[in-house]
Amino acid sequence: MRKWSALLAVGALALCSLASAQNLVKVNLQLKWFPQAQFAGFFVAKERGFYKAQGLDVTLLPAGDQSPIQVVVSGAADFGTTWIADLLTAREKGLPVVHIAQMFQKSGFTLVSLKSSGIKDLCAIKGKSVGVWPSGNEYPVVALFRKCGLTSSLDPKVSNPDVTAVTYPFDPALVFPNRVQLVSAMTYNEVDQIIGLGYDESKLDIFPLADHGINLLEDNIFTTEKVLNDKNFKGSGMSGREIAARLIKASLQGWDWAVKNQAETVEKYVLPFCGNTCKGSGTRSGAKEHQTWQMTEVAKLYNAGPTLKGWAGFLVPAEYQASVKLLRDQNILSKDPPAAAVDYGPWEQATGKKASDYK
């Protein structure tokens, strides 16, 4: 009898586990780029069961031919990650996207030149060529040009621009240094790739745009008004706002764990998933070394500002308003975004904090 009782107990436990798995709410999260340490916290949240503990079955979608905003607005994904400039410009175009959490608290956007080019002042680059990225990733550079009073070939109305912008698909080896004197580079990715092309750091000038007043934050979590207003998300019995709060809570758990356990995160949760993107083109080292570099650098972007005060994922209102002002001053935005462009509700529900209490 004891044997049968034990078997029945095991069978009941298996059925409960199966039922629990069947009750998980399926959620698609569209990442801004291909799998790499830039998204380590999300990998950790999935693989260590943080999403599952929140009742979510999260699929992490790598970047495709469309921007994350297009994918989420189309309904092919429920949530996405993107940059604040891209989100706000999309909002002005009438797309009902909503910022719900800010994962990186400092911009990692830089421009890189060879020291031999003699560039010491980003506002003194008239006659130079600059490598820029497409699909909304050019806005930080556009803001810099306009802040410096420089015209560029990105503006079709300008016939004789001060600066020639050369659009390239994210691999600096395609344009630098033969076609451009300055090239866009994230601290956690392309900087290491450029060094791998044979240009030691001692031969480079690296200009963080944040040091020049262009601190447009990257890597937020966003969704649409439709998702947030859904009273019964995918028939789960939970609202879209509840799902958003659960996603944020588990994602923050994942990021906190990843930042505290960087070596293990790279080994167990990044390298198994990043495939061909593990080793950046031109990178000086192997896949593990490049992803370790990337993990170290993204940890700095996450572990800054409000995160250091215990407010991870919080979009500081003053930082947000500074971004809006910058984008408006440079005519990238023609008006202030509507209040609905940012919704603190899901983050507040996820963390138990009130946005109004931030100091």
Rank of each mutant, 00 (worst) to 15 (best):
V112N: 04
R146Q: 02
G136I: 01
S116K: 13
P169V: 13
K157L: 08
L150E: 06
T167S: 15
F145D: 03
Y168P: 04
K126L: 14
A173C: 06
L144I: 01
F145H: 10
E138W: 04
H99N: 03
D121H: 02
S117H: 10
P156Q: 05
S113D: 12
A124C: 12
V142L: 06
G131E: 05
P169T: 13
T164W: 07
V130H: 07
E138N: 05
P140E: 08
A165Y: 11
D155Y: 12
G94M: 13
G118T: 05
L111G: 04
L122A: 08
Q105L: 07
V163R: 04
K93E: 02
W133V: 00
S113P: 10
G149D: 04
F109C: 00
L144V: 01
D171W: 09
V158P: 07
L111A: 05
G118Q: 09
T167K: 14
S107Y: 08
N160E: 07
T151A: 05
G127Y: 14
G118Y: 06
T167I: 15
N160S: 13
K126F: 12
S159N: 13
P161W: 08
Y168C: 07
W133L: 09
G108R: 07
Q102K: 10
P156A: 08
Q105D: 05
Y168T: 07
K115Q: 12
K157A: 13
K120M: 04
S153T: 14
V163I: 15
V166E: 15
C148E: 06
D162E: 07
D155M: 13
A124R: 15
A173W: 09
L154P: 00
